[in-house]
Simulated assay, not measured.
Amino acid sequence: MFGPIAEAIETRRLVLEPPAAHDADEMAVVLGDPRLHDFIGGEPLTVDELRARYEQLAAGPAPFHQEGWLTWIIRRRRDRRAVGFVQATVTPGARGLRANVAWVVGMPFQGFGFATEAAAGMLGWLRAHAVHEITAAVHPGNAPSAAVARKLGLRPTGEWSGDEIVWRGGDRHDRGTEG
């Protein structure tokens, strides 16, 4: 596997944990609202599909791949309830490692700053593991996700990835803020 291996991350209110197959039942409920797919496309995964995905993530990519797939389930510290996930795909870049990041928080848990806090925790962890460049792809109609990217210190570039705008930031002097 290429790059760092995900480990637990703690923030003020959250614990980020790499997923395991047994998390699929709980996460299928968290991610089951079709409205989550308005901007990212697709349909909610079934429990079996999600379990298979978590098993694949735990196994990692083939050893010859030049990318690392890192995913963390976002859990509230107070009750360990899953509220969403963050993820990063780490690849080699011109100045060292780079990561393309994303965040998804279940509908009932949106509006509490969980996405920003979890993504900021993930970015801090990535930077501590030699990731120098951060990008995220945000649909232009997804104002809440754009707000998270902005709070993280990312800025829209004018570049596109499919139907999403690429946001960039992440040199060691651009740490963003939690919100």
Rank of each mutant, 00 (worst) to 15 (best):
E117H: 11
R51N: 03
D79I: 12
G3L: 05
V148W: 04
G111V: 09
W125E: 02
Q56D: 06
H22V: 10
R13K: 04
A21H: 05
S161G: 07
R75V: 07
F112P: 04
G124L: 09
R76I: 12
T11Y: 02
A88E: 00
A147W: 03
E49A: 15
E164N: 13
G158Q: 08
F2C: 00
A143F: 01
W72R: 02
G32R: 05
A118H: 00
A99Q: 00
A24D: 03
G158C: 07
P34K: 14
T46I: 10
G42S: 07
G153Y: 02
E117K: 11
R98M: 11
L16K: 00
H22T: 08
H22P: 06
L70V: 06
V90E: 00
F85Q: 12
D163L: 13
K151A: 11
I74T: 13
E49C: 07
V29H: 09
Q110F: 13
A130D: 12
N142M: 05
P108C: 12
A102S: 15
A128S: 14
R53V: 03
A137C: 10
D174C: 15
V29F: 08
D33N: 15
E117A: 09
L14T: 03
H22A: 11
L57N: 09
M107K: 14
D79K: 10
G111K: 12
R80T: 08
H173Q: 14
F114H: 15
P19D: 03
F112V: 08
R81H: 09
T89P: 02
V104E: 09
L36S: 10
A149E: 01
M27P: 07
T89Y: 03
R75A: 08
I5H: 12
H129D: 05
F114A: 05
R53P: 04
L16S: 00
A99S: 01
F64Y: 12
L152R: 01
P140D: 04
A94K: 10
